[in-house]
């Protein structure tokens, strides 16, 4: 089922939690809502679900305006941030709940319910825990029960609020690949909320990036990562170095500016787009001092400071690091391999 939000706004008292948001989600798509804490992601999800009423604007599911409809009638599966499992019911009963509360005419027979629940539990690889209570499960297991429970009603839309929020990094990675695989199998239109950019970029077909109740950018992971439209997006999707450079009239950018020439230009550079050289050259004009080196990880992280005292960050390969014999407090020269600039950025 496709989802369309048109000019949706929501205030809590005088605080604007969602500010005139419009976007649409295609049928079968997996969309990530990405943004920092408090940016209105959960509120948008709850508005789509019908748990919260928008002050203005409308929610349209498959061409039907559901803004005034009860959440029960929307055919939406919702996975809550804190699972919200029924703690007085076993895992089996939790998953069966959505089937058991159906009106008698639509309710499957008891053997059918049993089969469907057990199928779902084996889908999330938890069939062996069917008769345990939520309190007896680990976080990741609870998360998967919550997912199985939401899937039991065969929803046409699946909404997941920080599904992996409270899990440790490894389980997180495992579960999100698993979610991607599951989505490719059952193709239910899904929206999932996260504040982890890596997660959003890895799992989703498209990403909506939110900030302070507004949408900053919508696009595929490649689009938002390689062509961010605002400094916020650029900064939110990874580490950033900011240079106050100058652009000359011939279009050339100089990093060690002569204040009298050209116009000031803010240059955004990712740490892996910075090159380090031991000698000054045309390509490596920026002098800096190494403050700290961290070699643990796939890339070597080097923290530096330029002559004005601004902190800088560079990622280089381990081979390069060994070749250069870099050490703390060493004087080096930085170059910029590629960079980003933004037109009219008032408050950055």
């Amino acid at each position: 089922m496709s989802i369309e939000l048109i000019d949706v706004s929501k205030k809590f008292g005088t605080f604007v939690a969602v500010d005139n948001v419009s976007f649409s989600i295609n049928r079968g798509e997996l969309l990530a809502l990405l943004g920092p804490s408090g940016s209105g992601k959960t509120t948008i999800l709850r508005i789509i679900a019908g748990l919260e009423k928008a002050d203005t604007g409308s929610v349209i599911l498959e061409g039907r305006d559901v803004s005034r409809e009860d959440p029960r009638d929307r055919g939406i599966g919702f996975v809550f941030q804190h699972y919200a499992l029924f703690r007085h019911m076993t895992v089996f009963e939790n998953v069966a709940f959505g089937l058991r509360v159906k009106p008698r005419k639509l309710r499957p027979s008891e053997p059918e319910i049993k089969k469907r629940v057990m199928d779902l539990l084996s889908l999330v690889q938890l069939d062996f825990l069917a008769h345990h209570y939520p309190m007896q499960l680990s976080g990741g297991q609870r998360q998967r029960v919550a997912l199985a429970r939401a899937l039991a009603i065969q929803p046409s839309i699946l909404l997941l609020d920080e599904p992996f929020g409270s899990l440790d990094a490894r389980v997180r990675k495992e579960l999100r690949r698993w979610l991607r695989k599951l989505h490719d199998e059952i193709h239910v239109t899904s929206v999932f909320v996260t504040h982890d950019q890596e997660e959003a970029l890895e799992v989703s077909d498209r990403v909506v990036i939110m900030n302070q109740g507004k949408i900053e950018q919508i696009g595929t992971p490649e689009e938002v990562y390689f062509s961010p439209q605002t400094p916020f997006v650029f900064q939110f999707l990874g580490d950033v170095n900011l240079f106050h450079a100058r652009e000359l009239s011939n279009g050339e950018i100089v990093f060690i500016p002569d204040e009298s020439k050209g116009v000031e230009k803010k240059i955004f550079v990712r740490p892996n787009q910075i090159s380090i050289s031991l000698t000054h050259s045309r390509n490596n004009p920026i002098p800096a001092t190494i403050q700290y080196i961290n070699t643990a990880g796939p890339m070597v992280k080097i923290e530096l400071m330029d002559k004005k005292g601004n902190p800088l960050l560079a990622f280089i390969s381990i081979d390069e690091y060994h070749e250069l014999h870099l050490k703390k407090n060493m004087e080096v020269f930085l170059g910029v391999k590629s960079h980003h600039t933004f037109e009219n950025i008032p408050n950055f």
Partner: peptide, 25 residues
């Protein structure tokens, strides 16, 4: 209200939520 909201999303009527979720808890 999270459990009640979960029940609502699963299609339970108000009386079902009361009987099956709220009261047992």
């Amino acid at each position: 209200q999270e459990m009640e909201e979960a029940g609502r999303m699963l299609g339970a009527r108000t009386w079902q939520i009361l009987l099956k979720i709220t009261l047992p808890n």
